[in-house]
Design a protein around this nucleic acid. Structure first.
Lengths: 232, 232
DNA sequence: CGTGGCCTTGAATGTATTCAACGGGGGTGG
DNA sequence: CCACCCCCGTTGAATACATTCAAGGCCACG
């Protein structure tokens, strides 16, 4: 692990409140590994042996069934994933693969489970993290059930624009095929959805997005914090 | 509150490990209320003032957007709902209404938040509950994104049959329109999906379901524990 | 300069929703 | 007790939405 990196991890909300001895114990059993792109880190159904923390690069969480595959989320530094499987000591519900070159910490799940029963600060942080994760999935679920694919795209663009500081232009940092899968549609349908939004103040050239008329787009997208506010 | 009822609540996984004084403190501020059917208990967007525990009857969790509505889950005794909103001290992401006459305990969210920071047993239980909820929604999300509506129905029937002891016959304890909404389709489409499954060993008359050929149905539904096992 | 992957486009197909109409069961009130 | 009505579920037809299949363009990379 690089100097300074451990300090940064220490400051993560999930670990910040841990007692020093517990933090040290947890990270004594940690591996840090670098992976090339397109490597499958975990496979759904496998036992959750490790809690993962993404330090660099990005990781895609996806799920499969009956030869179909869908993107569930992308994880960017610095964040953990599959905390719930670790805690329940159950199988992974999602698979994970690196999108780009990535560095990941692996924390033995058994240690995580042991320590959170004694370290109240850690337990508090886990509660907040899980509650956050839960609410995120509920919002995704609402998005998927209540909106059409064009509406999902429109709101996605508004969210990303907001996260980029409402500049009116930003870069999709994701392949369109993956974005399509994340939004619950095919790549072809995403192309057509983009064309539809051309009529509502959106221009997309490659990965560059420009929102030329946010009012128009918002009038179409009808965003609501109860689906679209990530902090809510 | 009825005699013996408090003991039953005390035995709920969420409260069983609490220190006696904390349990008493939490339930000192509790209300027990009876509601007629079709009463809206909470409305999405409102602040999460109370953690709810369903004692009798059943409650539907649903979400709305842009004049559309979808059923997210139904809560049966004895179970809690909207724990995550309580903990995050955020707005409800879902609304709730009684389906039948229902008795519900209301626990002030502020008390829940205060107590779980000091009571480690309670904190542990919350962690397990949230992890469970999170994984449930992830499974629902996979169900919705990876399966067609007929496949979702087929797997739903298999799950319910299993929960009823694999008797091969059971009662849908839910209106078909609600089931349709829960499964992410229209009522008309549910009717048609049922007819489709007639060809795969399923007979539905009113609310009575008979599975005449479970093998055939399972071959079509292709259930997997990673989506369909509620305990997983 | 070729090659492969990603994106786009078009056409055909499939899936699901909408709209309209109808039948049956349960409840209400005459 | 019966007539009526309303709600739920079903069915059909038309439409809308989304996927599949096929083909071609563009860019990055070797």
């Amino acid at each position: 692990m690089r100097p300074g990196e451990i300090d940064e991890i220490r400051k993560l909300p999930l670990f910040a409140a841990m007692l020093p001895e517990n933090f040290d114990a947890l990270f004594r059993g940690a591996y840090v590994q670098s992976f090339p792109p397109q490597i499958e880190l975990i496979r759904e159904g496998d036992p959750a042996d490790f809690l993962h923390v993404v330090l660099e690069g990005s990781v895609e969480l996806f799920a499969t069934w009956n030869n179909r595959e869908t993107t569930m989320a992308t994880v960017a530094p610095i964040a953990t994933f599959i905390l719930a499987a670790t805690i329940k000591n159950g199988p992974y519900l999602m698979s994970a693969r690196t999108l780009e070159k990535a560095r990941v910490i692996l924390l033995p799940s058994a240690d995580v489970r042991k320590i959170f029963t004694t370290d109240t600060g850690f337990a508090q942080a886990i509660i907040l993290d899980l509650a956050q994760c839960y609410r995120s999935v509920v919002k995704s679920h609402k998005d998927l059930k209540l909106r059409t694919s064009v509406e999902r795209l429109a709101n996605y663009l508004l969210r990303k624009d907001q996260q980029a500081g409402e500049q009116g232009h930003f870069d999709l940092k994701i392949e369109k095929r993956r974005l399509a899968s994340y939004l619950g549609m095919t790549a072809e349908n995403l192309s057509r959805s983009i064309r539809t939004l051309n009529g509502y103040g959106v221009e997309i050239d490659g990965s560059q997005v420009r929102i030329t008329d946010r009012k128009d787009l918002a009038a179409f997208a009808k965003p609501t914090p109860l689906i679209d506010d990530p902090k809510c």
